[in-house]
Nucleic acid binder design. Sequence first.
RNA 1: GGAAGGAUGGGUGAGUCCGGCUGAAACCGCUCGACUCGAAAUCGAGUAGAUACCUAACCGUGUCUCGAGGGUUCGAAUCCCUCUCCUUCCGCCA
Length: 423
Amino acid sequence: MLDMKFIRENMELVAESMKNRGLKSTALDDFEELDEKRRDILYNVEQLRHRRNVASDKIGELKRAGEDVTPMINEMKDVSDRIKEYEEKLKEVEEELEKILLGIPNIPHESVPVGETEDDNTVVRKWGKPREFDFEFKPHWEIGEELDILDFERGAKVTGTRFTFLKGAGARLERGLINFMLDLHTKEHGYSEIFPPFMANSASMTGTGQLPKFAKDMFKIENNDYYLIPTAEVPVTNLYQEEILEAEQLPIYHTAYSACFRAEAGAHGRDSRGIIRQHQFNKVEMVKFVHPEESFNELEKITNDAEEVLQKLGLPYQVVTLCTGDLTFSSAKTYDLEVWLPAYDTYREISSCSNFEAFQARRAGIRYRPEPDAGTEYVHTLNGSGLAIGRTLAAILENYQNEDGSVTVPEVLRPYMGIDKIT
RNA sequence: GGAAGGAUGGGUGAGUCCGGCUGAAACCGCUCGACUCGAAAUCGAGUAGAUACCUAACCGUGUCUCGAGGGUUCGAAUCCCUCUCCUUCCGCCA
């Protein structure tokens, strides 16, 4: 959510940023009108309330002195009625305004390229060279099925499409990857580990920006105000919801493993084979709470932290800056890490690192006190996947496959796996 | 699932029966100042958030907020209703 005052004072900028994202900015006209209306009503109602407060004090005083206050009370009845009328109008306007506000996306940072689709994303850097195969290589789902470590059919039988069983060395690889990533981030990158709930309520979902706009992308629990989390970002960012942090607590770095649940509405037919797009997948997430001046430095750092996972695993990747049209709703700037997948003959997203600036903090009420006696300010929040486990596993199967159908275990995972080859 | 108790500022906690003089005592913490070579101790002062208006800004003024929402009332932390969460006991359960 953007600051109302900021929108009021920067109408053109907000309108332009929405245009760059490929959105209509008609909501802004409504905003302007409602905002003015709200402040007008507010002025009137506050005047009346002031009158009422003064009179109420007076009535109390007179009553204690034993005087007759009936005429005054009768007069104030009328004032109270008028206040009630104004309050109802105010509530209407504020609800309308809130709706508009929650629908306005974050403003892309000036360094974000203007563009419409993912084709307009710019490649920042590449690491590693895609492997040249001297044999017929296979996609990960074939490798996985032949090694009997991925079971798609039974996943579909037991639950449904886009659910998969990992078995034997596959299950161990999944678990090894989780542990490897958590160990790396906690021991070498200074993150403290969180194990969050896998469900969160609608206030939290609104805090990080999933609600109200993206309800259909999530799984909702029946008879409860709970949603299955689409990412650990939700519970971890909301850890400090409605809290005021002390300046010296910042920056806070958290890393968390969680299962992630996504309805994948509108993705019918896309990536239907393999484990690239599942309704449930595992992910190790990194979340940061930082001083506003530091957030863009921190974005570079969090991206590097995610990159190091790929480097240690020896997986070729590229870093792209998402253009304005591809940028997610809450983000001011996002780097995607894309890993090389031979069977797809392209780089595919495996991590997304974003700076949300104060956008989430404002929604979630996460503030800090810059100086001991100063007023509060919103922190900046960031997050990055470090990494999506399923896609990492797919990348390992494809990039480390051997001609005989076996898969070599990357060096750094051997302590976690206890074997150096999956056969 | 059953029974009881509770939710007040950064923390502890009074106020709630008997509505107005309480945006909130007291203590702790924190900040600043005094004292000190420095520190501790002591003493003094300050110390909630949001928002509207004013201002270049500081300041100032008003309004709202005592778990959330609604009601009664001229007036609600205080009375009534609904909901949420927490604690304890019983039952059940990994």
